[in-house]
Simulated scan of single mutants.
Amino acid sequence: MDVYQRLGVKPEISADCCITLDHLQRDRGRLRTSANDGSEVRIFLERGKPLLVGELLQSECGKFIKVVGAEELVTTARCDNWITFSRACYHLGNRHVKLQIANNDEGGYWLRITPDHVLEEMLELLGLALEKELAVFIPESGAYRGGHGHSHGHDSGHSHSLHHRHEQHEHHHH
């Protein structure tokens, strides 16, 4: 089955089959994988817009394919202090680390990264409690990538772009 079309997250449409992808596979525009029914799926999509967990794709033959997040080894770091948590996010962002950010029902905060002993040591020194676990990793997609790192019904069927016009800026060099 060849896939060229993204439909976004559409809970009202039932999928004919599912593909389970980790965060690196969801980032790729070209991919060959197998669906849960054993059929081969070849994806040919615009690069730079990660597939969302829960997103529906439509194949050339009209089948609906749902994207499911694969469980992968991650490091989850938790803390209850907003300033400590913010510092951790700042330092990870400063290193351009892919991370997933959330809060729990008890008022605490957590972030998730792929395992890295240097980053884990930094997070522990900042005061976060770490746990290695198998979980679906849904990193934030970044401010300039036009999407959201979590699935919440955002329709990715339209294009996002960032326009920057140099003629609007005056440069004065003295």
Rank of each mutant, 00 (worst) to 15 (best):
residue 66 K to N: 08
residue 74 V to L: 08
residue 48 G to D: 11
residue 40 E to F: 08
residue 54 G to S: 06
residue 45 L to Y: 07
residue 24 L to D: 08
residue 49 K to S: 05
residue 23 H to M: 00
residue 37 D to P: 02
residue 39 S to A: 12
residue 25 Q to F: 01
residue 43 I to D: 01
residue 58 Q to F: 00
residue 38 G to D: 13
residue 75 T to G: 02
residue 53 V to W: 02
residue 58 Q to L: 03
residue 68 V to S: 02
residue 26 R to H: 05
residue 29 G to A: 04
residue 64 F to C: 01
residue 74 V to C: 15
residue 41 V to M: 07
residue 31 L to V: 03
residue 70 A to P: 05
residue 46 E to L: 06
residue 54 G to M: 09
residue 39 S to E: 14
residue 52 L to M: 13
residue 48 G to A: 05
residue 65 I to R: 08
residue 70 A to W: 11
residue 39 S to V: 10
residue 48 G to L: 08
residue 49 K to H: 10
residue 31 L to H: 06
residue 68 V to P: 01
residue 43 I to L: 15
residue 57 L to Q: 06
residue 62 G to A: 13
residue 41 V to Q: 02
residue 62 G to V: 10
residue 52 L to D: 07
residue 47 R to L: 02
residue 47 R to M: 04
residue 40 E to T: 14
residue 54 G to H: 10
residue 25 Q to N: 08
residue 26 R to G: 01
residue 32 R to G: 03
residue 23 H to Y: 14
residue 62 G to E: 15
residue 26 R to Q: 06
residue 27 D to M: 13
residue 65 I to F: 11
residue 63 K to L: 14
residue 29 G to K: 04
residue 32 R to P: 00
residue 35 A to T: 09
residue 66 K to F: 05
residue 23 H to L: 01
residue 24 L to F: 10
residue 65 I to Q: 08
residue 31 L to G: 01
residue 41 V to R: 02
residue 43 I to V: 15
residue 27 D to R: 14
residue 74 V to K: 09
residue 37 D to Q: 06
residue 30 R to F: 12
residue 31 L to I: 09
residue 49 K to C: 02
residue 24 L to R: 13
residue 64 F to H: 14
residue 24 L to I: 09
residue 73 L to E: 15
